[in-house]
Design a binder for these strands. Sequence first.
DNA 1: GTCTATAAGTCGATAGAC
DNA 2: GTCTATCGACTTATAGAC
Lengths: 200, 200
Amino acid sequence: MQEFVEKGPSGARMQSIADSAGVNKALIHYYYRSKSQLYEAVLQTVLGGVWEAIERDVSSLSKQDDIRAVIRVLVSTYIRALRDNPGFPRLFLRELADGGRAIPSLVDNLMQRYGALAATMLAALKQGVREGKLRPIDPVHIVINVMGMCAASFILRPIITAVHERVLERELRYDDKFFAARTTAITEMALEGIIVAGGH
Amino acid sequence: MQEFVEKGPSGARMQSIADSAGVNKALIHYYYRSKSQLYEAVLQTVLGGVWEAIERDVSSLSKQDDIRAVIRVLVSTYIRALRDNPGFPRLFLRELADGGRAIPSLVDNLMQRYGALAATMLAALKQGVREGKLRPIDPVHIVINVMGMCAASFILRPIITAVHERVLERELRYDDKFFAARTTAITEMALEGIIVAGGH
DNA sequence: GTCTATAAGTCGATAGAC
DNA sequence: GTCTATCGACTTATAGAC
């Protein structure tokens, strides 16, 4: 996993993987047949970890929850899932850069499980807008914005740390405190952007 | 550029580049010496395009502008710069996935030009919080959130289109209208998240 | 400057001994 | 199942003719 995370599918070397694992190349081929199949196995393992983390948290949501509860759970779930699977962001980043061919089936999988929940949320959003409690913002943009803010915490890490060091002249530690602050900051910005002031 | 965008530095093939260019490999080596130097040249060209687009817009900002104007300009600038340089997102994504070694020097360059402006903005934010006009949110999170929302428009494209198709059952067009809507949605969410309601 | 041909090296994969 | 040794395909890079 480490080799694929750092070098990518085409940059990774079977010899390097074998060395790290303390075996030789032939043994890896004996078990995985080819490099691409080994990569698939790595991808499935990491994806499974993230998936499990999301499942555990999101399953606590129900159709009765209001938009506040939903956003709160989604943000904290996403941040925690990425934090607990450190290989995932870079692996997924490369998949996106490679064209994102793995995405459609992933989304299908997600929709199968949470499609009904998503439809309910969508209806609730529209209802909220009609009643003047929510801002008339296209739900598509809510999704993109929330995912973007969450993903940025990990994807933009090199930029964030570099800027932080130069502007504030101290190191930024990627610890639990930072992630808790990110979760709060994202949740608040999302909620303030969605809910009309005073419409609690 | 196209080859490096699609396959990455290690996946790109000199033969494929030569074929697309209508010349042979030897000629490319004659001009660029090696594949990595060709890649550097590509990176510099694309980066230069983005840089120029940002310079042009951001230079219109002055220290007198309030937070609303600043956010508005930054968001529209960033969205436009990425839209007008379609190769950049995937190229930059790979750089981030590869560890982001090019980032620090980039940030240094940015700070040299806009460090003073950034410091002024930072002071204005703190002042706004003291006066109760702005929410007490750490400026670091404002930056991460805004960059994340902007970048998401491009980076998460495969996810966005897949979700859009399945939930709304129609295609999402990546046209000027979409980018205009993204700019508005990001600006509004950012401003509502920063500015205390009624504190216009 | 631009080409053909090939050198030099790398890497995934496998044959075959144990 | 696990190893050593090696094959064979592919790729960057260059030598050398024009």
